[in-house]
Design a protein around this nucleic acid. Structure first.
Lengths: 245, 245
DNA sequence: GAGTGGTCTAGACCACCCG
DNA sequence: GGGTGGTCTAGACCACTCG
């Protein structure tokens, strides 16, 4: 280990990325023991034939990811492998269903242009009553209804949104087509009971638990581009996240 | 703006931190317009009288925080201010109650040493049946019961934990006293119904919605130090988080 | 005091984006 | 082609930790 690691310079890929991925592979394939101390940065830099700054950039990324940790004045060490990593990533329904091998489908219940209710307006940075596009859908996973989702999108930013086939792709695909890249979201999660309408749509008894989510989605420049109420069947849905102190 | 920003070198505080906080203040106090383009990095570096690498380090932090964004080949820009920031931080019950001006109290229901159930063992990286400390508590906010929390902690790591006054401080304070700094947690959130026991403890009807959480807490080096089931009153509790694509 | 990570410099060249 | 961010170097000194 840690010998003759000189990289063959690969076209286009930054050195720190190559080093990072190289080390990550060593870690994930178990070639480094838990708690093991790594060589000092200076030495690693020599082995990889890069400057210390570049080496640090690679190490920083791995520390960020939680694979390594540093103790000032002592050294850099392997973390214990944790079960789950990389939560709090924003993924869309089709993407995550595909990863899990689930057959995803969307049925549009409402697609309309309406004046914005107060809460929607304030989330989207609009005046109350400014026009928004409302799209209410039912989501199915392997033909089982799992969520009712109520999207609100500023009409002024996406005047042609309703021309799209909203059952054919995820809403975000269309938002991106119109020039807004989905970047971050802030969401709040609650436990609620299903009312009779939700019960009917989700094929559960009314009164059964619902994981209820309010979410505001922002583009790269911070513009709010979507506000959503999301009602998820309690027995079919959970949310996993990673927190840092 | 952007003139004569030369920093008086302040004792001990790294330059990139001073620059970062300086810019953050400008942003938060509205001295920079939304969407405004910043001067190029080279120029900023000159104004602050540092090298470009140091300037970049400061800017990187602000981009990370979502206050700025970059477009390669074009420039660095102000983001729109977003309502909420800095979620997905791990906070303890007493800390967050204090911030909100809520009077927090903990009542211990169970404090015992037991063989670990399978699920607990696997979360904590133990063999099934290895001893764990189980601490079950009721949390009150302004005398209203809000959560029932069931903690499991490896006995071997904290053999003297039960000597502590567990109602006097948060469990994490004791874990840190014994040498383990709480660093990260991975949690999964579900919607459930209250059973009769929970109903009684939380003073709600059985069948009412519960925001149920399973959480594994890790120390700095990745050692799992706590696994917890957490039952929160649906009408008193929500979780807010920020997601990134 | 030796070992190690944390910060910082003053350059350099490249890749990308725009008019 | 000019402006800009992305990457990289080869040094340097400081701050922290440990024996």
């Amino acid at each position: 280990m840690f010998n003759n690691k000189r990289l063959i310079s690969i076209e286009g890929i930054p050195l720190y990325v190559q080093i990072r991925e190289n080390l990550k592979k060593d870690i994930q394939e178990g070639r480094l023991a838990i708690g093991q101390k790594l060589p000092p940065e200076e030495e690693l830099a020599q082995q990889f034939n890069v400057s210390r700054m570049t080496m640090r950039r690679a190490l920083n990324d791995l520390v960020e990811e939680g694979l390594l940790y540093r103790k000032q004045g002592r050294g850099t060490y392997m973390s214990r492998p944790q079960i789950d990593r990389d939560h709090t990533r924003l993924t869309n329904f089709f993407e995550s269903a595909k990863e899990k091998g689930i057959n995803a489908a969307i049925r549009v219940l409402i697609a309309d242009i309406v004046p914005s209710p107060l809460k929607v307006a304030s989330a989207l940075g609009l005046e109350e009553g400014e026009l928004v596009i409302r799209i209410k859908t039912l989501r199915l996973a392997n033909d089982i209804p799992v969520s009712v989702v109520d999207h609100y999108v500023p009409y002024q930013l996406f005047p042609h949104l309703l021309d799209c086939d909203l059952e054919a792709a995820h809403l975000w695909d269309f938002l991106e087509e119109f020039g807004f890249r989905v970047k971050t979201a802030v969401q709040t999660v609650y436990a609620r009971e299903a009312d009779s309408e939700l019960g009917e749509l989700l094929k559960i008894e009314s009164g059964e638990p619902i994981l209820f989510k309010e979410r505001t989605v922002y583009a790269e420049d911070g513009t709010p581009i979507e506000f959503t109420y999301c009602y998820n069947r309690g027995d079919q849905y959970s949310i996993t996240m990673k927190l840092t102190r």
